[in-house]
């Protein structure tokens, strides 16, 4: 069995190679086909590994491979922190818990 590339969603290298064979040419294309990058870390670890696999399989220049879009929040944050006014202690607490 091949190793996990996306640890959060347990997506293997084989599955990612299959997605590329299926037509994925971007990280988002791999993501939509496999679920990689959709977990808790939002691709922080696997995004670069996936770029490497796309480059190896398709011969594209890694620098020109589109990575997945980065959307808020930057890291997991509680709903109540998002709903509290900026600077509120609940918001700070939410961020502390994530450390």
């Amino acid at each position: 069995m091949s190793k996990h590339i996306c640890r959060c969603e347990e997506v293997s290298e084989d599955e990612i190679r299959q997605a590329i064979a299926d037509g994925a040419t971007t990280v988002t294309g791999v993501k939509r086909r496999t679920g990689a990058c959709m977990g808790l870390c939002q691709g922080r670890t696997c995004r670069r590994l996936i770029v490497g696999l796309i480059a190896a399989e398709t011969g594209q220049n890694p620098a020109e491979i589109e990575t997945s879009s980065v959307r808020p929040p930057v890291r997991p944050v509680t709903v109540e922190a998002l709903l509290s006014p900026a600077g509120d202690t609940a918001g700070c607490k939410g961020r502390e818990e994530d450390k």
């Binding site: 808020p72 997991p76 944050v77 709903v79 709903l83």
Partner: peptide, 29 residues
């Protein structure tokens, strides 16, 4: 995505599903 909409959706969601207040958001799209 906009912070105003995230807040408006979550405010409404928490009023119906209160447990959501303590749940972590990982992404918006």
């Amino acid at each position: 995505v906009t912070p105003e909409a995230t807040a408006a959706v979550l405010r409404h969601a928490v009023s119906i599903l209160p447990f959501l207040a303590k749940v972590h958001v990982i992404r918006t799209f």
